[in-house]
Write a protein that binds this DNA or RNA. Sequence first.
DNA 1: GTGAAAGCGCTAACAT
DNA 2: ATGTTAGCGCTTTCAC
Lengths: 342, 342
Amino acid sequence: MAVTIRDIAKKAGVSRGTVDRVLHNRKGVNEEVAQQVRTIAKELGFIPNLAGKALATRKQPLRIGCLLPSIGNPFFVDVIAGFRQAERELSDFGVSVDIYEVKSFDRSVHLHMIDQLHRKHYDGLCLTTIDVEPVIEAVDRLTAAGTTVVTVNTDISNTHRLCYVGPDYFLAGKTASGLLALACKETQNILIITGSFNMKGHQQRIMGFLQGLSERGLEHTIIDTYESLDDDEQAYQKTLSRLEAHPETNCVYITAAGVQGACRAVKQAGKGKNLKVLSFDDIPSTKDLVREGIITCTLCQEPHRQGYEAIQKLFFHLMNQQDPVVDTITRTFIKIRENIED
Amino acid sequence: MAVTIRDIAKKAGVSRGTVDRVLHNRKGVNEEVAQQVRTIAKELGFIPNLAGKALATRKQPLRIGCLLPSIGNPFFVDVIAGFRQAERELSDFGVSVDIYEVKSFDRSVHLHMIDQLHRKHYDGLCLTTIDVEPVIEAVDRLTAAGTTVVTVNTDISNTHRLCYVGPDYFLAGKTASGLLALACKETQNILIITGSFNMKGHQQRIMGFLQGLSERGLEHTIIDTYESLDDDEQAYQKTLSRLEAHPETNCVYITAAGVQGACRAVKQAGKGKNLKVLSFDDIPSTKDLVREGIITCTLCQEPHRQGYEAIQKLFFHLMNQQDPVVDTITRTFIKIRENIED
DNA sequence: GTGAAAGCGCTAACAT
DNA sequence: ATGTTAGCGCTTTCAC
C-alpha cells in the first residue's frame, strides 16, 4: 500500500493539514515541525497520489500553454494532434491545453508572444521558438517566475527549461547520408537546399549529412547550398536554375520546407536523370512525392509524439515533482515508398 | 464543466446510488427509471471522471495480466519495458500489471497458460500467443467471461478481442524489399531464412518481401527458403551450407530470430562478397551487427510502444467504456548504421 | 502555528 | 427498489 499524507501525519503526530503545508512549502509552520515532516516523508518514500490530487485541485486545473510557429506550416499539424491527444487523456486530471500559433520564426513576434504567455500565468508551457539571446532571456524570466517550460522540436540553449522533446537534427542528417551511401556507389554531385542559414536545426542537418558522407567514404561534390526560406516558389526557381546549370547533379538534399517547390524543379529539369531526392518530414505533399517516386526517401521525426510527450512530461512533473526529467530525443524515421503509409 | 453523476441524479430525480447502479448495469432498479437515467446520461454526454473512479475503486484495483513467449527471446525486453512504464504511470489510478513469460510458441503451453490466466480473473489481458483453433476458443471463453483481451505483437483471428497492437508484417516485408531495391539494381540471388513456416507473421514478411520486389521490378531469384526455428546454431549451419553451395548469393533476408547465427555464417563464407543482409528488430546483438556493417538494415516495429499502448488501451477502455477502440499498427522502422542509436 | 472539516466524483456498504 | 452515508487521497477554508 502506498504511503499517504495520513501516514506521515500520524507518524509525525501532526494533522494532515500541516503535512500538506510543509509539502507545499507554504508558510505558517514551525520550522522544527516542518523539518520533522520532511524527514518522515522522505524516509517513507512518499509520492502523492495523482488521482487524489487531481480531484482536490479540480477547481484550479492545470493550465498548459503551447507556442508554435505553425501558421502555414503543415509539419505542426501532427504536433498539435499530439498536444490534443494528451489533453484529452488527461482532461479528467484537470489538464487544459491552449495553443498559440504564430507565423514564421520572426524574433519580435516570438518575443511578444512569450511576454503575452507570461501574463497569462500558465502552470506549464511548451515552446517551439528561436534560440537567440532576447528569447532566451524571456524564457528565463518565465522559469524564474515559476512557470515550467518544455522546449519542443527546437531547443534553446542555456535555459532552465525542464527538458527538450524533439529530434536530433545532426543524427537525422547523418542518417540521410547513410541512406544515400546505401543507394549509390558512384560520386555524388549534390545540391543542398536549406531553409535558412540562421536555423540551427537546418545547419545541423547539413553538418550531419556531410560528416556521414565522409564516414561512409562516399565521394561527393557539393555543387551549391542555398536557402529556400521555407518558400516553395523560391525553392522552385533556385533549384531549377541550378539543375539547368549543373546537369551533372545526381542528388538533391532538402533540409527543410520548400520540398514541393524543389521537386517541381526536379520533375521539370531532372527528367530521366535518375536523381536521388532526400527530404525531411512527411507532410501530405511530401508523402505524395514519395509515392510518385520523385523523393527517394524522407526522414521523419515523430511529430505527434513530440506534442504528446511534451504535455505528458509537464503533467507528471507539475503533479509530482519527484523524478529527474530527461530529454526525449525522438527517433529518426526513414520513410520510403513502401512504409510511407496512410 | 463536465457532467457528473450528481447532475444526472438531479435531472432524473433519483439518488446518485441509483444512477451508479444503472450505469453499471447492476440489478435492482426499476426498468423505467433505468431507461430514464440512461437517456439522460446519454443526452448530457456523461463521461465518468477517471480520477474519481480511480480513487473510489482503490480497494479493487484494475488487474491486468500479460502473456509473452519471451523466455530466451530478447525482442520482448522492450515490450516488457513498455508494460512497466504504463504500469508506473497508471499505478495511482489503481492499475497493476502481472507478466507471465513462457518459452516458445508451444501450443499446449499457451493453452495451459491461458487457462491459468482465466482462473485468476484478470480485468484485462494482453496476449501474445498463437493463432490456432484451440487457442482461439480459449480466448473466446475468456472474453465471454467478461475479461477484456488485447492482442499484442501477434493477432489472433475471429476473436472478440478489444483490439490488436502490433506491426503489419506484410508491410514490413515489403519495406525490406524497397530498401533492397534502393540499394541494388543488379539481379538479386536471395537466401531467405525464416523462423517457422507455421508462424503467420514470418510468412507475411516473406510475402510482402516478394510482392515488393515485383512492384519495384527488381530481378531476383530465391535460392532457398529455410527455417531457423529461431535458433542461432541452426541458422548458422544451414546458412553456411547454402552460402558455400551458392557463391552467387548476394542477399540474405532473415525474417525472424537466428540473426546472429546467420550472420556468423555470412562473416565466414561471405567475405568480400558485398552481401546485403536484411533482418528484423534490433536486439542488442543485431544492433552490433548493424554497426559492424554486416547487416545492411534492420526493420523494427516499436516494441516498447506495443507494450505501453496495449496497457493504456485496456486502462482507458476498462475505466470508461465509451469510445470505439481501434487497432494500433506500429510503424515499420528502418534502421541503418546511422540511426541505430544507443 | 495548527487542527478540524468540507468537498472534489465516484463506488459500495448500509439503511429504508 | 431506492436513498443515504462513508470513504478513497488530497487541498483548502475556517476555526482555534
